[in-house]
Simulated scan of single mutants.
Amino acid sequence: MELRVTATTLEVLHGGKRVAAHPLNARRGAHTTTPEHMPASHRAHLQWTPAKLIAWAERIGAATAAVVRWQMEHRAHPEQGYRSCLGLMRLGRQYGGDRLEAACARAQSIRSPHYKSIASILRSGLDQRPLAAPVAVQATLPLHENVRGPGYYH
């Protein structure tokens, strides 16, 4: 295999014959991808956009939409969240929208809006249990002469 690089093109040669050619991006560090040279799984992602994924999630419910938005916002590039979002779609087909919505709500309540967490919640059936109300914890200060309490700082 041999590569031929010009100012505008990268060519791949095999046995002296060109088997592929890619245009080079003029921006430093940028890349170009020819869809027909992508793996089939990556090509399938081309039809999706963040807006389409969020619109799908909103039809399921507010918690699912929040998880999908989180996936898009917490990645260097929104496309990196597509696999997780497509996985959520698969979970929705497998378990139903109501269960997916409940699992996303639970995942948010434990601050873990990740695909793996949501899949685990669904597998274990935790989505079908009520969310526990947050317990108010009343902190009591130990009695000691060095503990000043909040009144000291006013």
Rank of each mutant, 00 (worst) to 15 (best):
8 T>D: 13
132 A>W: 01
128 Q>P: 02
145 E>W: 15
124 S>H: 15
99 R>Q: 15
147 V>T: 08
112 S>I: 04
20 A>T: 03
83 R>N: 07
6 T>Y: 06
49 T>Y: 04
123 R>A: 14
100 L>H: 01
131 L>N: 11
14 H>I: 11
60 I>D: 01
11 E>L: 06
88 L>V: 03
118 I>A: 12
41 S>W: 05
134 P>V: 10
97 G>H: 07
68 V>S: 09
28 R>T: 01
151 G>S: 13
101 E>F: 05
80 Q>H: 10
57 A>K: 07
41 S>A: 13
15 G>F: 00
81 G>H: 03
8 T>P: 00
109 S>N: 14
46 L>K: 03
2 E>L: 11
38 M>V: 10
50 P>K: 02
140 T>E: 15
8 T>C: 01
7 A>T: 08
134 P>S: 11
118 I>L: 09
77 H>L: 12
72 M>E: 11
146 N>W: 15
147 V>Q: 07
139 A>P: 02
97 G>L: 07
80 Q>N: 09
7 A>S: 12
9 T>A: 02
21 A>P: 06
17 K>S: 09
69 R>G: 04
53 L>S: 06
83 R>C: 01
37 H>C: 08
7 A>Y: 03
47 Q>Y: 04
140 T>D: 11
8 T>S: 14
71 Q>T: 04
43 R>N: 12
150 P>V: 10
101 E>V: 05
68 V>I: 05
29 G>S: 02
21 A>W: 08
32 T>F: 00
30 A>E: 09
67 V>S: 11
95 Y>T: 01
106 R>Y: 10
32 T>K: 02
99 R>S: 14
137 V>S: 01
54 I>P: 01
59 R>P: 00
113 P>A: 02
102 A>M: 02
64 T>K: 04
113 P>M: 00
149 G>N: 10
9 T>D: 14
60 I>P: 01
137 V>N: 02
124 S>K: 15
101 E>I: 04
31 H>C: 12
119 A>E: 12
89 M>S: 02
52 K>W: 07
52 K>H: 06
116 K>S: 15
75 R>G: 11
101 E>C: 09
84 S>R: 07
32 T>M: 00
154 H>F: 15
96 G>A: 07
144 H>P: 01
50 P>Y: 03
71 Q>W: 00
77 H>N: 07
86 L>Q: 12
146 N>T: 05
137 V>Q: 08
82 Y>N: 12
36 E>F: 08
14 H>V: 15
154 H>Y: 14
90 R>T: 15
98 D>T: 10
45 H>S: 06
67 V>G: 11
143 L>W: 06
76 A>F: 10
103 A>E: 06
85 C>R: 00
62 A>L: 08
4 R>Y: 01
15 G>M: 01
107 A>W: 05
